[in-house]
Amino acid sequence: MGAMSIWHWAIVIVVVALLFGGKGKISNLMGDAAKGIKAFREGLKDDGKSDGPSDGVSSLPRTDAEKEELKR
């Protein structure tokens, strides 16, 4: 009862083939998920790089009071 028989392995192989094999919807879904993960990782790598000078100033929009303070 504790060991897997040939029928157990056959069922497992059939289920895996149905889920991940062929041109099925699930295999396309897995491919899309992999592309999303890859794009996410590339985005994380790009966050470490800065495009302009890094002087500690945030690139967020400023309020009018902050703009006046910077003019002084």
Rank of each mutant, 00 (worst) to 15 (best):
P61I: 10
K49C: 03
L19H: 13
L60D: 13
L29W: 04
G48Y: 09
A10E: 02
S58A: 15
V12D: 08
P53V: 00
P61S: 14
I11E: 09
S58H: 15
M30F: 11
V14Y: 03
L18H: 02
L60N: 13
G22C: 05
G36W: 02
K45A: 12
F40Y: 13
D47M: 14
P53L: 01
K23G: 11
G31D: 03
D47H: 07
S59Y: 07
K38Y: 12
S54N: 09
G52Y: 10
N28W: 06
G31V: 00
A10T: 03
D55P: 00
N28D: 14
K45T: 13
D46Y: 12
G43N: 03
M30L: 12
A10V: 01
K38C: 09
L60P: 08
G21Y: 03
I26W: 07
F20N: 11
G24A: 03
A39P: 00
S54M: 05
S27I: 10
V15M: 05
G21H: 04
A34P: 00
L44H: 06
G56T: 07
P61D: 08
K38M: 12
G31Q: 09
K45C: 08
E42K: 13
D51M: 09
R62M: 14
G21R: 01
G56L: 05
L29M: 07
D47L: 14
K45F: 11
K35N: 01
I26V: 08
S59R: 06
S27M: 14
V15A: 07
L18A: 06
G43V: 02
S59P: 04
K38F: 13
M30T: 14
I26E: 06
L44Y: 05
F40E: 15
V15S: 05
E42A: 15
K38T: 12
A10I: 04
I26F: 11
A10G: 02
D32E: 08
D46S: 14
D51H: 08
K45I: 12
G24H: 00
A39F: 03
R41H: 03
I26A: 09
S58M: 14
G22E: 01
I11P: 01
